[in-house]
């Protein structure tokens, strides 16, 4: 009994502090209001983030629908015997939150600066393609093909089930850590741009 009264008193005391008016609003109002606003903002932010993380969003602008999406549809990452589809964000947006934000800011630059400003026809897209592709290669190279590895991993690869040609490559270059997926598997989801000067990953002269 004594404990409940003590708690009730403590709560009441707290409440009095809370309820004491600040200049215009009560401290309680300010704190709770701030909390609610925070929840709304954070939730809204993440919801917006999630919404912009769907394939539907990516291809809502016609440049992406007419170009990368049409091409993706032909490839093994769209339909395959396993029934797993890789959508745009699977390969293009990191899963880690901080990486994700960083990538979003980079992408918004691309979206506003490049897409709406300059890439409004197929021809302009193709002209810019090498540059855009290089950004992706650099990114995947720098993070050791992180997005590929979210679905594929060297550890869970059963090379006895792979074709000899693939086994030899993976044993010599992948498992030794010498090369990463994107060094050898460029253009697995889209048509490639002009590849002059780009060495295949299995060449000694390819950039490490």
């Amino acid at each position: 009994m004594a404990i409940t009264t003590a708690i009730r008193n403590a709560v009441a005391a707290c409440w009095r502090v809370f309820a004491r008016p600040s200049v215009h609003y009560s401290l309680g109002f300010l704190t709770l209001g701030g909390f609610v606003a925070g929840v709304l903002f954070w939730g809204g932010f993440n919801t917006a983030l999630e919404a912009s993380n769907t394939e539907a969003f990516c291809i809502s602008c016609h440049e992406m629908r007419d170009n990368p999406y049409e091409e993706l549809k032909q490839t093994i990452h769209f339909t395959n015997r396993s029934g797993v589809r890789a959508s745009c964000p699977d390969c293009h947006v990191p899963h880690q939150w901080t990486d994700k934000i960083a990538r979003k800011m980079q992408a918004s630059k691309e979206v506003w600066g490049k897409i709406f400003g300059t890439i409004d026809t197929r021809e302009k897209f193709l002209d810019k393609r090498r540059e855009l592709a290089e950004h992706e290669w650099d990114r995947l190279k720098a993070n050791n093909s992180l997005e590929c590895r979210n679905c594929h991993s060297a550890e869970s690869m059963d090379i006895t089930k792979q074709n000899p040609r693939a086994v030899k490559m993976h044993e010599t270059f992948l498992f030794t850590g010498e090369k990463t997926c994107i060094d050898c598997h460029k253009g697995i989801a889209h048509r490639l741009p002009d590849m002059h000067g780009i060495e295949p990953g299995w060449n000694a002269s390819a950039v490490k």
Binding site: I76, G187, I188, R191, A204
Partner: peptide, 22 residues
């Protein structure tokens, strides 16, 4: 999905003279 066009010849990335060592 091996691309053979003006941009790239995927076959030659393996079968060309310069690339067969790798």
């Amino acid at each position: 999905d091996y691309q053979i066009d003006l941009n790239v010849n995927k076959c030659l990335t393996c079968h060309d003279r310069r690339n067969v060592e790798g």
